[in-house]
Simulated scan of single mutants.
Amino acid sequence: MMVLNDRRRLLGACAGTAAIVLALSGCAGGAADAESGEASAGGSEECIAAVASAVEEGLAPSPLVAPSAPLDLAALSGKSIWYITNSHNQFSTEMASGVQEAGEEAGVKITVFDGQNSTSRYSEGINQAVAQGADGIILMAIQPSVVAEDLKAAEAAGVQVLSTLNGDPTEPVEPGTFGNFTADYTADGELMAQWVLNDSGCTSKSVVVQSSPVHVWDLAAKGFEAATKELCPEDCSVEVIDLDPANIANDLGNQLQTALQTSPDVDYVVPVWDSAIPLVAPVVATAGRPITVFAHDGISESLELIASGQDQQGTLAMAPPTWIGWAAFDEVARAILGEESPGYVIPTRLITEENVGDGSIADVSPEYVDFQSAFTEAWSQ
């Protein structure tokens, strides 16, 4: 949390040194020295100096975020929480495992429901949870606005609903939910831009890949764009590819190939989610020039690619998905008991070949190796 706030203060402090221009970055000049992590000369000295400290801070391990207050496990015993996800994938499955682990520890029944990327399925899951007497719901990557009527029914039944990974933590809480548990995607986009600027020596020419209907992707893309605009208005540029969420698999390759062909100086490609890499990598490989690929999330496949030096050079990794599951459970459990929300924000860390190690939690998130103990010890105080 403090790390993200410090990033924002850095951007604000740089506002007087850089004019605002609507652009995003990709590298046409000097690349970073892999040994020292220092950007070579090429772009604005003010820009280079401004981003270096933010990147150094962003590369450091994220501090552990854990409960600071006990949890009345006796009062929770026999309660029911549903985990309703937008789709079944590696991230959602690992998060579900965390929710289930926490539920088992607390004596709470956990039901996992796969929304299958279908609005009707999302509604079905919420309605089933209400009908079966759920006490709480974790709504993962499903915008509350698309199930607004169902959330009204849940609220009327006294079900505590947590919106998860659906926006920035400072955004208003959606009707029918009690909180918004998420990463700070705008700040994350800013830090991704700072890494690109640092890596390129503030001469980057970038293509950002997103789908604006996916709110968190849009926030990250706009954060990236705004930071580049502020810090590198003269020497950097950005093109944003905005995909139809229903046709990402078909459209990404075609649009990215066109962008790389029509803009031969592009040397950074920034999809704002790691799972896009299998679609991005073949296009980048046929471009015929060095292009750096940087993304967001920190899923295990991407960490393995970075560790092996293949297809992806970096990511802004969130804390482990299993931790996200435990933290989401803790939020909902406290809401069920009528306690104040702890207001967790998912921490993130810049991961490159410099600090990825073998891609394990021990290397990427060393403070989270045994995070479960921090939760159970706090709960039993």
Rank of each mutant, 00 (worst) to 15 (best):
M318H: 13
I299N: 09
V266T: 12
L316K: 07
P278Y: 09
V269M: 02
P320C: 05
L231D: 00
N247K: 15
V270W: 00
I248S: 04
I306E: 01
G314E: 06
D244L: 11
D235L: 06
G314Y: 05
E234G: 05
N247A: 15
D311M: 12
L243C: 02
C232H: 04
L316H: 12
S237D: 14
T286L: 12
Y268Q: 13
V272C: 10
I291F: 04
L260N: 01
V270R: 01
Q310K: 14
E301K: 12
E301D: 15
G253S: 07
A317W: 08
V270Q: 02
P290C: 07
E239F: 13
L305N: 10
P233S: 06
G253Q: 10
L279M: 14
A307H: 04
E239T: 14
I291R: 01
T262E: 15
D244K: 12
D242V: 04
V283T: 02
I241C: 04
E234F: 09
Q310I: 14
V283N: 00
S302A: 13
P320A: 05
E304F: 08
Q257V: 10
L260P: 01
G253T: 10
V284G: 00
A249Y: 12
I248G: 03
L231A: 00
V240D: 00
A259W: 10
A246W: 13
V266D: 04
L260H: 02
L279Q: 11
N254R: 15
L260C: 03
A249R: 13
D267K: 15
Q261C: 10
T258N: 12
A317D: 11
G314P: 10
G309C: 08
P245I: 09
V272W: 09
T262M: 14
G288C: 06
G314Q: 08
P282H: 07
T262R: 15
L231I: 12
P278K: 10
P278G: 06
V266P: 05
